[in-house]
Design a binder for these strands. Structure first.
Lengths: 237, 237
DNA sequence: CCTTAAACATGATTTTTGTCATGTTTTATT
DNA sequence: AATAAAACATGACAAAAATCATGTTTAAGG
């Protein structure tokens, strides 16, 4: 029993749009955008775009979760950003008119639209409000990146690990139990975000588990003692 | 014998402007901008804006060098960005409509203009090209920040220190001898950029000095063996 | 369902880096 | 010029974290 193929609803009816930079577009602009966008389905683990490729459009996540990673030294992967429904991805290289410096890979099955590059630039130019939404989005990402820099520079691995769990909670939210972080990452992926070795990551999660800060079952991480986790992250109030 | 007070030349004649995001403005726009900007002189070590303050305008560095720093944990300073002539500073908080998350402090005597906040937003809205220049600038800063994240996550202190010297060279250039990095930072400031302790920073610079990679005299750092420095930074080709 | 690879886990060891201590040099200020 | 305060420097030690090794569990693919 397969799911029926959904109607191609178009940008008008797209509920995700309202939580994206495109919330400022209206009426005819949406009809037009619809003509320059296409929507694709991705299986977990698939590349949306890859390092070194040339951008041909802007990606907008409809559903599913995406990691933005770059290959560091000795091929070690670094997770730079995490995206979810409503987020645009692949904008940095597009705007700078460069090849991708990072890759986007789905963390679960996803549906992602592509908006044609030339059209995107045109509508940005004609709609200052849209461009300003983009400016604000990049500014936010810059803030997040700079917070990460401070953390990497000044905190130890234990603190960063606790911080990362809080970051995942803030980014992807919790399941119905209000405790379980709503994303499945391997220990290696968490390590690639935290900036540590996989072993250290595993060890620290085990420690947090023993300390009753979290509860582990498979890839699921349940935050059982939020105040203690915040304290472990050493976050100022 | 004092220097004569220079004519208030205005944005028309400003040569720095051509290397800034404002290079896209023309004619009347420059006359208008002149009415909404003021220029200030700063002594070395002065604050241009301070963490937690409210932005009232956009700063544009005329001459002099500026560090953008934030206070991390236990009050430890983190250098996030370095600015020079033609760079805009204080844009992140302004655009996000937030209080400053970082401070800007001059590294030497400087002359810096402020462009009124409301006017800046108005001219951005009416001049897509200007806003796009801003988008590109922030995108670049994001790229720089993310490169720094990879470095902090994956490289050891020695490699990061070598990388930092190359970064300073790229940012501020070299003196006439084509070897001396054109900026004076204390060892502590370098450490606050690299993400290490002051002692480790001092030690590594001494080592590089012994290894004939650099030559030290006071705060001046001369790169005497660039290939070896690049190799020490472990940068891929 | 079985097989294989990936992911998870943990101990032992080594390397890296921070911290503490102490002394010297440079710079700024009266 | 004298004095104080930064800034620079280096050794000794401790702490943190990576690496190596090895084994178990879980998940994926034929």
């Amino acid at each position: 029993m397969k799911k029926p193929i959904p109607f191609e609803t178009g940008c008008h009816q797209c509920t995700v749009r309202m939580h994206s930079v495109f919330n400022v577009l209206q009426g005819d602009q949406l009809v037009e955008m619809n003509m320059y966008k296409s929507c694709n389905v991705y299986k977990k683990g698939q590349y949306v775009f890859a390092e070194n490729g040339l951008p041909t459009g802007l990606f907008c996540v409809n559903s599913g979760k995406v990691k933005i990673t770059t290959t560091g030294y000795d091929g070690k992967e670094q997770i730079l950003r995490l995206a979810k429904s409503g987020d645009i991805v692949g904008y940095r290289a597009l705007i700078s008119n460069e090849r991708y410096a990072s890759s986007a890979v789905t963390l679960e099955d996803a549906s992602i639209c592509v908006i044609d590059k030339d059209y995107f630039f045109k509508v940005m130019e004609s709609t200052p409000k849209l461009m300003f939404e983009v400016v604000k989005k990049i500014s936010q990402d810059l803030k997040t990146a700079e917070d990460h820099i401070v953390s990497l520079s000044q905190k130890n691995v234990r603190e960063r690990m606790a911080e990362a769990l809080l970051f995942l909670k803030a980014t992807y939210g919790l399941e119905e139990d209000l405790q379980t972080i709503q994303v499945n990452l391997t220990r290696e992926e968490i390590a690639d975000y935290v900036g540590t070795s996989t072993e250290s990551c595993i060890r620290l999660l085990s420690e947090f588990n023993q300390d009753k800060i979290i509860a582990l079952s498979g890839k699921k991480i349940k935050i059982t003692n939020l105040p203690l986790l915040i304290q472990t992250a050493n976050i100022e109030d």
